[in-house]
């Protein structure tokens, strides 16, 4: 009898947490669809616009899901995106698009790996390491460009990374679908994903079971760096330039998206699809508020409030 009661409360809790983002998403979507019927909220164009605006946050949120599920945090993603947009743009100008893509990814790999090494070898808290790295990466981007934007003139690059579309489908949408699919399968269905969850759920226990928890900590931060670099390259393609400001403040939206999606800030559980929906939810709110004609100060307040309420609901046991 007792165990059945247990089972029920367990299911309730999981359902509640997992579905919150879905319910919230649908509810807000319907709300805007009805109230903003005449402002064109539901037009294909506007919807694609939302997708385009959220795709970059969603991409980073996929990698951040792993980071948070493993019990770490990465505050440097926005700054890495900015730095990678700049290194990509500079390299394209000299050596062409292929080298540019390689340079961008390498930037993320390097910064992410340094984060990972500091956290897992020197045993520093990821919060502080990545907070510091945020400044280092952003500052480097400013320094190597003299704070000036670096235009990207390569059409092919811009088309693939963000500006173009295949038929009616924007390339950004394709990126996010691919990244989400890979992320979801890796977290749910591979030993790596399982070990990420184990590490975040109870680091000591995971270690005693034979999980190399340091390796996991290193990998989640490194991958987060690489994916943040990809996000920076998407910014660069969409805005046809590299600039140190791209991605500024994104770390907060990304973390909010992940937590909205039902991933526990204490680690041990996480949902990639939830995080992406969380990002979309934030995108829908931003878009709706703009269409409602609110001033940007009001938008920021409402957005903050919605995140607090949603996180409060999602983390209630």
């Amino acid at each position: 009898m007792q165990s059945r009661a247990l089972e029920r409360s367990r299911n309730l809790r999981i359902d509640w947490r997992q579905y919150l983002v879905y319910v919230g998403f649908i509810a807000l979507f319907l709300f805007f669809a009805i109230t903003l019927r005449d402002s064109g909220f539901t037009t294909t164009n506007n919807l694609l616009n939302i997708a385009r605006q959220t795709a970059i946050i969603a991409t980073m949120a996929v990698a951040m899901t792993f980071v948070i599920a493993a019990g770490q945090i990465d505050l440097s993603v926005g700054a890495i995106a900015g730095l990678a947009s700049v290194t990509t743009a500079l390299t394209i100008a000299r050596f062409g698009p292929v080298a540019g893509v390689a340079a961008g990814l390498l930037t993320g790999l390097l910064v992410g790996a340094v984060n990972g090494l500091l956290v897992t070898r020197l045993l520093m808290p990821s919060f502080l390491v990545t907070l510091g790295m945020m400044g280092v990466a952003r500052g480097s981007a400013m320094w190597i460009t003299d704070t000036a934007p670096v235009p990207i003139l390569n059409e092919r690059y811009n088309a693939i990374f963000g500006s173009g579309s295949i038929g009616p489908v924007p390339s950004l949408l394709i990126w996010i679908i691919v990244v989400t699919a890979i992320g979801a399968v890796v977290l749910r269905k591979t030993t790596y994903g399982r070990q990420v969850l184990a590490t975040g759920g109870n680091e000591r226990a995971a270690r005693f079971t034979g999980v190399d928890t340091r390796r996991i900590g290193f990998l989640v931060l490194t991958v987060s760096g690489v994916v943040a670099a990809l996000a920076g390259m998407l910014y660069a393609g969409r805005l046809q330039s590299g600039r140190f400001q791209w991605g500024e403040g994104d770390e907060l939206s990304v973390i909010a998206a992940v937590v909205l999606g039902g991933t526990s800030l204490f680690g041990g559980s996480g949902s990639v699809v939830g995080s992406v929906l969380g990002a979309l939810l934030i995108g829908v709110v931003n878009n709706g508020l703009i269409l409602m004609g609110l001033e940007s100060s009001q938008q920021i307040i409402i957005r903050g409030g919605i995140i607090i309420v949603a996180v409060a609901l999602a983390s209630r046991k």
Binding site: L197, A198, A205, G268
Partner: peptide, 9 residues
């Protein structure tokens, strides 16, 4: 003595 299980799995 201290368990080696992951509560979230």
């Amino acid at each position: 003595q201290e368990f080696s299980l992951i509560p979230t799995l």
